[in-house]
């Protein structure tokens, strides 16, 4: 029997009013694994990330992180215990400098002794030259990197990445894919929500396909492309609830 995975999500449910955004999702991620999360718009991918990162408490089910149920914990406590994330549209602290942005996370969100220093994070993501600039003066690709830097500065064991590839040019895409693979090679577990097939192919070990709040496929990307229901969902526009 394999050891307990780093993250195990069991029958996770979340409702907004009458709308079931998550309807019993279950999956797991191991250390060093990159799991892709794909599905039509409104299928519940971002809600899934929001629940795991503590922005919403789950209505049903459990989020087991390193064997402990952390469902419903406050986001700052989850950050300190090693779960972090990026946002679909980056949310840096606009009027603060790049260095201050990362410093805050390194100071308050430190999840382990091994968390990298601010300088190491900035260097690693190619932001060292921008350290003294205000976040609002960065371009959108740089803001995405800063969002990632803020997450990495806490030294997370699980990183949730929400559509980081959108809007990047081909060279930036390639670099981003390499960076995420490098993080996984160091033992970090990643959950990557993404639409771009090429990027998914390069980055993920395994994918989950979601539709209408539940997972309909769990396996390799190549397998997903051949799966009849997955094809129907993507081509037929069968996602419910928009």
């Amino acid at each position: 029997m394999s050891p307990e995975p780093l993250l195990r999500v069991e029958r996770l449910g979340k409702r907004f009013g009458g709308f079931r955004a998550l309807d019993g999702v279950s999956f797991h991620i191991d250390r060093g694994e990159v799991l892709g999360l794909v599905g039509p718009n409104g299928s519940g991918k971002t809600t899934c990330i929001n629940v795991i990162s503590g922005l919403y408490p789950p209505d049903e089910g459990s989020v087991l992180f390193a064997g402990r149920n952390v469902g419903g914990r406050k986001p700052h406590l989850l950050a300190r215990s090693g779960i972090n994330r990026t946002f679909q549209s980056p949310r840096p602290f606009l009027s603060l400098t790049v260095r201050e942005n990362v410093e805050i996370a390194a100071t308050y969100g430190r999840a382990s002794e091994a968390a990298p220093t601010v300088d190491v994070v900035l260097e690693r993501l190619g932001l060292a030259a921008e350290a003294a600039r205000r976040a609002e003066d960065l371009n959108s690709a740089q803001q995405k990197l800063l969002d990632l830097a803020r997450a990495l500065a806490t030294g997370p064991r699980l990183l949730l990445v929400d559509e980081i590839a959108a809007g990047l040019n081909p060279a930036e895409l390639l670099l981003m894919a390499e960076r995420l693979r490098a993080l996984a090679a160091e033992g970090m577990a990643l959950l990557v929500v993404e639409h771009l097939m090429g990027f998914l192919e390069r980055v993920t070990d395994r994918v989950i396909v979601m539709n209408a709040g539940r997972e309909i496929f769990d396996g390799t990307l190549a397998g997903a492309v051949r799966d009849a229901e997955v094809v129907r969902v993507f081509l037929g526009g069968a996602a419910h609830g928009g």
Partner: peptide, 11 residues
């Protein structure tokens, strides 16, 4: 600047 982001930074 952003309470959600601040929470994810551990604040």
């Amino acid at each position: 600047e952003d309470p959600v982001s601040a929470a994810m930074a551990g604040v």
